[in-house]
Design a protein around this nucleic acid. Structure first.
Lengths: 243, 243
DNA sequence: CGTTCGGTTGAGCTTTGTCAAACCGCGTGG
DNA sequence: CCACGCGGTTTGACAAAGCTCAACCGAACG
């Protein structure tokens, strides 16, 4: 049995038995992909939403002249496919960044879920809301931050998102994002990402070596990146107890 | 009586009488703001979501060193405040770009709505989904397009969004976005936005003068901006009839 | 009328990109 | 076990896109 959704939601709320059952009814089997695999190609028909069970993936698209733009990194417990909900087809490519296992579930199942449980609906919207806020922060990065700040901000975003889902998250963690990928995500060249990473190292912000990243001075990094501290508070996804 | 939500939803669906009633029960009174007014300041407590009834607004925030980043332009029938749903306070500033009238409604009212009408819930998510997809496109712009392409893409996005809500939308329309605002939205300097706009004029893509904009050659502009044509199809917000 | 706000223009400068080469660790197949 | 190739990182030299500063203009508005 595959309890992706349950894993995700239970992290925020103590689910009741009946809620768990609702979630279980929704799920299909888990699917496993090898690092580098194309999970879903832009243009293919979409009937399912995905939840990442374990591992990392990313959403991207190739613009004109084969320039790649990367929109988002998806990891443990993230939803994938919200942007495509109202389109018949997938808009973007989805690649496995590491080995990854995901759970598809039918998108129309959501409606059912919302009918049955207001609490889950609220939670779902809370999660979406945080995701959108994080997107806004990335927009701020892309538009108005220097290369160094972009990279710093991105590292902090990843660390934050990991800490939300993994109870044992520490300042040293696996960071499987290649500099080329970071470049396409932050709107930089990979060469410049490299120089920025090295500058972060040199100034003692981080230690970094083959997929291992350690944040040495979180406070100073937060300041450098102008990271919005309101994201550090744990989310109240359960955003209104009202009837 | 103020029927913002009704106006919005009815545009996509033929609402039944009972659906209309549900929506009306949700609404409060309309509120009017003068061009330039600060509608909601970052940090203020949030209990309401807004729908724009008429006019334009924008969402922004000031980073370190007082650099402004503009996240989104909101116009007729757009939702404002989704990103803040799970935060107790407003994260960003909201300014009136033109004279604008908005309808607030209590955010917890949404849940109620979803319980009552699956169809409205589906519609709501469909709308959100389109919004997120458009955000992704802006991310692509910010990251990987040249100044000229950014500006072109933005113009097309606005035109598209207008055409979705206004039945009489034509290739010539009011465009109340100052070049400084465009700069903060696209991650450019206002000087460079100016040069880009003029280049678009010079090459016969657009005509543009004091808040009036005319798209002279839509096809060529689409091509220049590498605009994703899938957005041009009218949305199937009613994305699944299945129960 | 004077002030303010947005648009326009030019000159010089900075950040970041491009190109190209070298390097490094790792897995593969001979 | 070695040679090879591949993907990712590193470095340097140079080029370019876009920024800053500063001045000016015109329209709107009180």
């Amino acid at each position: 049995m595959s309890q992706c959704l349950e894993k995700k939601f239970n992290h925020y709320l103590d689910l009741t038995a009946s809620e768990k059952e609702l979630l279980e009814r929704l799920e299909k089997e888990k699917v496993y992909y090898r690092s580098g695999a194309l999970i879903r190609k832009a243009g293919s028909p979409v009937n399912d939403l995905y939840v990442i069970y374990e591992g990392w993936a990313f959403v991207s698209k190739n613009l004109d002249k084969n320039i790649r733009s990367v929109f988002d990194i998806k990891m443990s417990a993230d939803f994938v496919g919200m942007a495509e909900l109202s389109f018949g087809e997938s808009l973007y490519d989805l690649y496995a960044l590491t080995d990854v296992t995901i759970c598809p579930f039918p998108k129309h199942g959501l409606n059912n879920l919302f009918q049955q449980s207001e609490r889950l609906a609220r939670l779902f919207h809370g999660v979406l809301s945080r995701e959108q806020a994080l997107l806004y922060e990335r927009i701020a990065s892309l538009g108005r931050r220097t290369a160094l700040e972009k990279v710093a901000h991105f590292i902090l975003e990843i660390s934050l998102r990991l800490s939300l889902m993994e109870d044992d998250h520490s300042s040293i963690f696996r960071f499987p994002v290649s500099q080329t990928l970071m470049a396409d995500l932050l709107g930089l060249s990979s060469v410049h990402v490299n120089r920025s990473m090295n500058e972060l190292k040199r100034h003692g912000y981080i230690r970094y070596n083959r997929e291992q990243l350690e944040i040495l001075d979180n406070e100073r990094l937060l300041q450098l990146a102008d990271f919005d501290r309101r994201f550090l508070q744990s989310p109240h996804v359960d955003w209104h107890e009202k009837n």
